[in-house]
């Protein structure tokens, strides 16, 4: 290995640079992990042999309704994902298979939402939500995002690439419009659905400002807002508790990411390139 390094100084340098940057990049995270797993009394000292503890996590779990927050986030993400799939699939199918005069203009109008995301209009959207009585509900948090321009765009691109012959063959066998969509289009577009699903799940799992404005109670608050409520009370008081709460709140997504790393990365790539 040494000889290898000597004969390839450039490769050795790249490896060193790559790893140096990697260590630098994860250091904030590792420092938080370190603090969260050690007793608060040791917080100000560095000692490799300090006792490890789960006590911070236990205290955090008991101090705030994190289980409820997770349930809320889970419900929010599920509602959002299911509705987005339905609404965006219908719209994309219409754009590809039932074009009519002006449908291209409509598609351009849909794309406007790519630039002007609902949170930019949060003052007006808050008012709309209060008028229809959906403030402080999980459906209310999800609502502005259900007709996702990004989803419509992505599905339309995929549907367009499906050969016409497949659709015609299904028609000849007597399938109606709905059957064509469910039996031909959706199965072929499965990779796109997975990619879009992963992107949208991580977006809504992480979303903060809009849920912060809309929610007002433990029963609706997603984990991001719950974490913030907890951290505001503890701030500057006990860092080991805050880091434990932070790690706790990102744990499910982080574990899922570490397990399905390749799919995540490929999904983000696929979603971005189209």
């Amino acid at each position: 290995m040494n000889a290898d390094f000597r004969s390839h100084p450039v490769a050795a340098l790249t490896t060193f640079a790559g790893w140096f940057l990697a260590v630098l990049w994860v250091s904030p995270l590792l420092y938080a992990v370190w603090t969260a797993f050690h007793p608060a009394a040791y917080g100000a000292r560095f000692d490799l042999f300090m006792p490890l503890t789960l006590e911070n996590f236990v205290r955090v779990w008991n101090a705030a309704p994190f289980a409820r927050y997770f349930l809320n986030t889970f419900a929010l993400v599920t509602v959002t994902l299911v509705c987005q799939f339905i609404v965006c699939t219908m719209a994309a199918y219409a754009f590809v298979c039932f074009p009519f005069r002006g449908s291209n203009v409509l598609f351009m109008l849909v794309l406007v939402q790519l630039m002007i995301m609902p949170e930019v209009l949060l003052v007006e959207n808050y008012r709309t939500l209060s008028r229809i009585g959906l403030l402080d509900t999980i459906v209310g948090i999800a609502m502005p995002y259900l007709a996702s321009a990004f989803g419509i765009f992505l599905f339309r691109q995929t549907f367009k690439s499906i050969p016409k012959e497949l659709e015609e063959a299904a028609r000849l066998e007597g399938a109606n419009g709905l059957q064509v969509l469910v039996r031909v289009f959706v199965p072929i577009a499965k990779p796109t659905y997975i990619a879009y699903g992963l992107v949208t799940v991580s977006y809504h799992w992480n979303n903060f400002l809009w849920p912060l404005v809309v929610t007002n109670s433990v029963e609706t608050r997603p984990i991001t807002v719950g974490l913030q409520v907890f951290a505001t009370i503890e701030q500057g008081v006990d860092w080991s508790l805050i880091t434990a709460a932070t790690l706790l709140s990102v744990a499910p997504l982080l574990v899922a990411f570490l397990l399905f790393q390749r799919q995540f990365v490929q999904s983000f790539m696929r979603a971005g390139i189209r």
Partner: peptide, 29 residues
């Protein structure tokens, strides 16, 4: 690069964390 996959993961991990969590981690950092 040796350990390519690990290095790539190190670079990519902050991306999937919520900004709220990132902010709390850095507040401490």
């Amino acid at each position: 690069l040796r350990g390519q996959a690990a290095v790539r993961m190190a670079y990519f991990t902050p991306t999937i964390l919520p900004m709220v969590a990132v902010a709390n981690i850095w507040l401490f950092f």
